[in-house]
């Protein structure tokens, strides 16, 4: 069909697709899925970190953490707006999240057990997210691409702060070192998994690449992540929980051992340590906020009425 050919030609020329433009239904569908999932991840991602604001060990760290979590909420808001340009409403997306239909990043179904988890999330989880988002900043859909550019800048800042924290603790007291190592041990594999299944198990990837939504495969992005982070973590004097990990001088890549995809799929399918609690927390916040939203609506309607009457 001519429109499709023209659409694909635009993408091939590196043009951005904008909200008013014609697009294949499947392109739209995939973008709504990805962007809303991304937005949900930001919002759910506030929970594991937000819970440590009250327990941060210094005024400076507390301030940094509030600011970070606030940024995440802002990213969520920004991404919901980007998804709305594709004709889906915030209410529909929230409903899909609360009903368990929509997914969010599996990484947030792991618990934050100590303060070092906060640094480690910044370093590894934001680090993995940045690799993904840097790629998505090239995305063919304009609003998503621009959202990614902005978000990436902030995430890079969080990533730096997280890295600095973990390295500080790795050079700290024995308890701090142990805490940092424990956190790396628990988050390393989930961080690798959060970049998605192997290319061979990722049926959407070819289409997404063809349409310029993704420009790299999961395995490529994962390899970039490992190549950057593995040597930095080792240099910090910490170890990684992968006995097979080695540097391959031929390819210049750090080669990792087998990933436990059973665990990945268990978490994706709702059986991770925190799936129930995260969703429950969101549902509870939504339910307990119902009277607030209702009050706002009634107030706004009354003001409007008054305005009209006057």
């Amino acid at each position: 069909e001519a429109r499709l050919a023209e659409f694909e030609a635009r993408i091939a020329r590196g043009e951005k697709i904008e909200p008013g433009d014609w697009m294949p239904e499947e392109y739209r569908r995939q973008l709504v899925r990805m962007i809303s999932q991304h937005a949900h991840s930001e919002v759910v991602g506030m929970l594991p970190e937000g819970a440590w604001i009250t327990r941060a060990p210094s005024l400076k760290r507390k301030m940094i953490l509030i600011a970070k979590v606030q940024d995440e909420a802002g990213h969520g808001q920004y991404l919901y707006h980007a998804a709305e340009t594709l004709g889906v409403t915030r209410e529909e997306m929230l409903e899909a999240l609360l009903s368990g239909k929509a997914k969010y990043s599996s990484i947030f179904n792991y618990p934050t057990l100590t303060w070092a988890d906060i640094g480690t999330i910044g370093w590894l989880v934001d680090g993995a997210a940045i690799k993904n988002q840097t790629m998505l900043a090239q995305c063919s859909y304009g609003p998503y691409s621009r959202a990614m550019v902005r978000i990436c800048a902030e995430e890079t800042f969080h990533h730096k702060q997280g890295k600095e924290m973990v390295i500080t603790y790795a050079q700290g007291t024995p308890k701090q070192r142990a805490m940092a190592q424990d956190a790396i041990n628990r988050w390393w594999w989930p961080a690798l998994m959060m970049l998605g299944p192997h290319d061979s198990d990722s049926p959407n990837t070819p289409t997404l690449v063809k349409w310029g939504i993704k420009t790299k495969t999961n395995d490529q992005v994962r390899q970039e992540f490992i190549n950057e982070h593995a040597p930095e973590i080792l240099e910090a004097g910490l170890t990684l929980p992968d006995p097979d990990l080695r540097y391959d001088s031929a390819t210049g890549n750090w080669v990792h051992g087998p990933i436990d995809w059973d665990e990945f799929w268990a978490v994706v399918n709702g059986n991770g340590p925190m799936n129930k609690e995260r969703l429950e927390a969101r549902r509870k916040a939504h339910a307990e906020g119902a009277w607030v939203r209702e009050a706002l609506a009634v107030y706004a309607a009354r003001k409007q009425q008054t305005a009209v009457a006057v």
Binding site: M46, L47, V69, Q77, E288, G289, A290
Partner: peptide, 11 residues
């Protein structure tokens, strides 16, 4: 944080 009635108000 993370438990507000509306995302904007959480922020």
């Amino acid at each position: 944080v993370g438990h507000g009635p509306i995302l904007e108000e959480d922020i």
